[in-house]
Amino acid sequence: MADIARIDPHDDAALRAWFGVEQASIRADRPQALSRTYAALATAVRHPSPYVDRPLLAAVEGGATVGVAEVELTTQDNLHLAELAIHVHPDHRRRGIGRALHDAAEEIRRAAGRSTVVGELLVADGNDDPAGMAFARALGFGSVHQEEHLVLPLPVDPAGLPPPPAVTAYEIVIWRDRCPDEHVAAFCAMRTQMGRDVPVGEVAYEPPVIDEERLRSSEERTRRAYHRIVAAARRREDGEMAGYSVVFLAHDDHEALQDDTLVMPDHRGHRLGLRLKLATLEVLGREHPDRRMLHTWSDRENHAMYRTNVAIGYRRAEVLHEMQREDPS
């Protein structure tokens, strides 16, 4: 049976072996997955956020890593919550390795005093009997929220895009990896609002307040592994920020992630979400022509944003299930 141990993130051989198993597991099940790069993993665990502890576990058998687990424990908010991801190499599945990793992660979770565990399970379109779902349900997890993973092949032909809304009352402001000082307060307010507005179903999660310290810490760490494009809408008459959209581009990949897009409540109804997404697409095509696929996630219940994504040309590749289990009270 495999030995389960916490790995040293500064041990490059161990971390690369860990990453290799994660990627082999993902690619075996999800042909259109967007997964992090090695640089992104190394950044997360070698330059840790002051807001998150992230233990990594490895199952090692005969000197080879055959399974991995990641536990994420926030340190300043949601102190009831632990996030868990488990991957077993396709050649070593159905041998109890996943359950052994789960049990080792449970020791970490209980020691941290966390009562709720959540994890993401992505199911590729056409997979009617996902083994990961059966595994999660056997461990007592239930699906408490679903989103669709949507993909858009790049480059995009501008002729196939919907025309930008003619909204002259707003201008688009673009920045890259670091928010300009004059926009920090407004950007933090919008980021906080995004956390409150994004659908989470029954996930037992309370969105944190984003302040300048948290924003700057995130920017500093993110730029080690990603480029960032931010488009923000600003009302011309008074300079009030009305919304934003963010795209992340890993330094060592040809994929891109369309992350948050938000329009603030008082500014909705002007199709600013579409305008913001088109603005990031324009910068993406001009500055990063090597990218081949743009990924995003959308809840069908978020009707306006889902319609916007469909109009741009996204199509569904997977369904994301937020799996959750709570200790008995």
Rank of each mutant, 00 (worst) to 15 (best):
M1L: 12
A2Q: 00
I4M: 09
R6G: 11
I7F: 08
A13M: 08
A13Y: 01
A14H: 02
A14T: 05
A14Y: 03
R16Q: 13
W18M: 00
W18L: 02
F19H: 12
F19N: 10
V21Q: 07
E22N: 15
E22R: 15
Q23P: 04
Q23W: 04
A28P: 00
D29Y: 03
Q32S: 13
Q32L: 13
Q32E: 15
R36D: 14
R36H: 13
Y38I: 10
A39I: 06
L41A: 00
P48G: 08
V52G: 10
D53A: 15
L56G: 09
G62K: 06
V66D: 06
V68R: 10
A69V: 00
E72H: 12
L73R: 02
Q76V: 15
D77G: 11
L81H: 04
H89Q: 08
D91S: 13
R94G: 04
G96Q: 05
A104N: 02
I108W: 09
R110Y: 07
A111Q: 14
A111G: 13
A111V: 04
A112Y: 05
G113Q: 02
R114M: 06
T116G: 06
L121C: 00
G126D: 06
G126R: 02
D129L: 10
A131G: 14
A131M: 10
A136V: 06
F141S: 05
G142H: 12
H145Q: 14
H149F: 11
L152E: 08
L154K: 07
P155K: 06
D157W: 04
P162H: 04
A169I: 03
A169C: 06
I172M: 11
V173G: 06
W175C: 01
R176G: 11
F187N: 04
T192V: 10
T192I: 10
G195F: 00
G195L: 01
D197A: 12
V200H: 13
A204S: 14
A204I: 07
Y205M: 08
E206F: 11
P208L: 08
D211N: 12
D211Q: 09
L215H: 03
E220A: 15
R224N: 11
A225Y: 05
A225Q: 09
I229T: 03
V230F: 10
V230T: 14
A231T: 04
A231M: 05
R234Q: 13
R235I: 05
R236E: 08
E237S: 13
A242G: 02
G243H: 01
V246M: 12
V247A: 02
D253P: 01
E255Q: 15
E255T: 15
E255G: 14
A256Q: 01
A256N: 05
H270A: 11
L274W: 03
L274T: 08
R275V: 01
L278K: 01
A279Y: 07
T280V: 15
T280A: 05
L281R: 07
H288I: 05
R291G: 08
R291A: 07
R291M: 11
L294P: 05
H295W: 01
R300T: 12
E301C: 14
M305D: 00
R307D: 14
N309A: 06
I312G: 09
G313R: 00
R315T: 14
R316L: 05
A317T: 09
E322M: 13
Q324R: 03
D327A: 15
D327T: 15
